[in-house]
Design a protein around this nucleic acid. Sequence first.
DNA 1: CGCTTCCTTGATTTATGTCAACGTGCGTGG
DNA 2: CCACGCACGTTGACATAAATCAAGGAAGCG
Lengths: 256, 256
Amino acid sequence: MTGQPDLRKPLQTRLRNLSLLKPADEVRLEGLLSTIVVYEAGTTMQPEQSRYEATRILLEGWAFRFRTLDDGSRQIVNFLLPGDTVGLYGALFPTCVSGVELISDVRVAELPCESLFDVFAASSRLGAALCWIAGQDERFLEQQIVRIGRLNAQLRIAHLLLELFHRAVMSGASPLDAATIPIGQTLIAEALGLSHVHVNRSLRALREKELIEVRPQRIRLLQPDVLKNFSRYDFSAIDPKTIPDRFRQRLNSRRR
Amino acid sequence: MTGQPDLRKPLQTRLRNLSLLKPADEVRLEGLLSTIVVYEAGTTMQPEQSRYEATRILLEGWAFRFRTLDDGSRQIVNFLLPGDTVGLYGALFPTCVSGVELISDVRVAELPCESLFDVFAASSRLGAALCWIAGQDERFLEQQIVRIGRLNAQLRIAHLLLELFHRAVMSGASPLDAATIPIGQTLIAEALGLSHVHVNRSLRALREKELIEVRPQRIRLLQPDVLKNFSRYDFSAIDPKTIPDRFRQRLNSRRR
DNA sequence: CGCTTCCTTGATTTATGTCAACGTGCGTGG
DNA sequence: CCACGCACGTTGACATAAATCAAGGAAGCG
């Protein structure tokens, strides 16, 4: 409805679907995101088991959350796209469990963990919006579990690519841009519990079905809808666009 | 410090570790949990894709969250123990994605989804406590991902059993009671992405190592610490006992 | 130019799934 | 009380997806 979404404000774009925030909330949110920091690709923005230094909101670039096992292997728990948060509950836990590493150069907004308390106090709508983000995050994790637990390699990969495509679109990317997933085969392997060799072979199979195009450090979805059909990806599992009306009024009426 | 925890109040027991709530909060929490409902073992308390009818808090009995694929197989996403919540953010989403089925007869406290808004308004400490529960929930999911993604069958099983043991203890069970996990082999298979045949064989292997004792619909941990060592289970990944001090004051000073 | 990182491919091994059969305990209904 | 059916667990034989080992290729970078 507002024409092109502003690529600099992926969080706002995501929240726009909710149709929950009032102009005053938008302003407040804008204020929260005023401290911008830039990190370089490859950096570990947050080591495992470290203290949360800040709550961060990804504005540009890709990252992932991971956990390292004592045999040295890593499990990628979730990918982080523009509009995703890191350490949202940071003030409630002494340390994080998973680390965050950057895939590309990244621009983030940083705020003190404890300032979230003020957000909740100042605007219940904004607080609810952040909880909604947290809730979506949990759905990503669930989806990851289903993928790894029940799907074979090809389906796993297709399903993951589709989720990332979908999330990129939600945060404001054009479908064309979103169709290019900027991650390499090693990361896919670490995310899906597969060996990189097997990922490679499975990608070839998908390529031969003309579903994707593979290039170093990127994979392009050629026909997202065919792929969606192939992997039986369910968009609605992530993307319940809006708060149920019966609850909305609650947030609009009471307290400022 | 208070002697035996009250088994009727697993949520309070879990939150006690936080040392965050004040007497007034405890009272309020007590009030929230006043509507008690009982469901029978085997019931689907919440079908997939259904509306959230209520936010629920498990007081007694075991359950699990799951998702069904179109080939009919199920993935168990997480087990639910006393003190766990169901649909905490229910007011923010039109439908749930995962269903909830009961392993045993279950006693739950039910409250209208939207009453959570009031909780946040009335006591930021209680609100924070609930967010802490939600944050722990997310850690359970992460742990499940790591298990399924990186561990082989025996380790997966050992690791899961240990998590359940640990969680049971956190919600007030005695270590002795908690060592008996009341779930059958089929459920373990559905949770860990394994075939029930293979689960059976892996359990036998664990049994032969004298780590567990297997009986219909229950598994007993014989030596939790040896098992912990075996599976390299990391308790701290779930159980950051308390809110960092530097943030605690925030919750105690401002607003009532 | 040589290094590194990522991708690619083949040969072989291994973990896990599938199929099939049988056991066992339990509740139900005759 | 027995007989039956039905979940659930157990075991064996076999099939297969994916891991591992090993080697080499292509692209980026100092």
